[in-house]
Amino acid sequence: MALDEAVAVTGATEIDAVVIGAGPVGLFAVFELGLVDIKTLVIDILDRPGGQCAELYPEKPIYDIPALPTVTGQELTDRLLEQIKPFGAQFVFGERVDELQRGEDGRFHLKTDAGREIVAKVVVIAAGGGSFTPKRPPLEGIEAYEGKSVHYAVRRMEDFRGKDVLIVGGGDSALDWTLNLAPLAKSLTLMHRRDEFRGAPHSVEQMRALVAEGKVSLVIGQVTKLHGETGNLEAVTAKTSDGAEQRLAVNAILPFFGLTMKLGPVAHWGLNLNENLVLVDTEKFETSEKGIFAVGDINWYPGKLKLILSGFHEVALMAQQAHKYVHPEKKLMFQYTTSSSSLQKKLGVK
């Protein structure tokens, strides 16, 4: 969804509310905002909805969702998507909101890492543990090499042409890039801690064939040290599975060790924080900035519990206040979905 639009972003998208994060709480925010006539656009850095539920434990049962004695992370995500369908939220995947500022007209101006611009009346931060970012191997001095010789993603394959490339990891990313970069690179070494790979069996076979042909070298071991001046990598020291040390001359590394969560750009939006969590009140779940809300795992208030069900409660109260900003002229009447014909109309059940 992101890729086709990343090329040419023309003008800003205008919307009532932007929800940052498509995890369970972000998705349910669409529901509660929808009930009070607030149109939403949801942005997530991952390429699909579900947040941690889909990324970390899609198959694990969750036992503390009211009325669902057991539900997996993926099922919960799917059910929420079904529940919010009537509200026709827009979704943007694979992008991270980098900038958030209040414009002269009082609305919020957001910009993603793909250059997409959005203008919204309210912003709901439902970013969970923060944005998923590639894990950085805790090797001494690695920061200096990042962007120059150490890359966590392949932006342009051409950048690796003619280089001595080291790919570290045993999953699909490591295997796919081994297969794709081997023809371009001067030399390609794949390093993994064990001689078993998690990636697709077909990719493993192809990789093994390249190793047999001498086009890829496979090292079973782990990187322990980086060598080179001013960010230009010259070699790495690796500890092989038998405990021996080996020096490999390489000038580019692609480490693939999965994702971790970092607060990321949210930390720079001028919101009051408490140990990397966004401070909110417990009446509206509003941050120190009026019109910006924080719900779910990313917020903090006295007594906070990082439970999905707490996040659901938070979005319901948040929506009441959001309504005041988005529809200041309208009085909000409290209604039940079981009896209100206007709510039922919005839900498409009447």
């Binding site: 805790p138 045993g170 999953g171 801690r193 078993e196 998690r198 322990t224 060790f257």
Partner: peptide, 11 residues
Amino acid sequence: EEDMLDFAFDV
């Protein structure tokens, strides 16, 4: 667990 240990450092 063995798969997940691939994501740990100095295994």
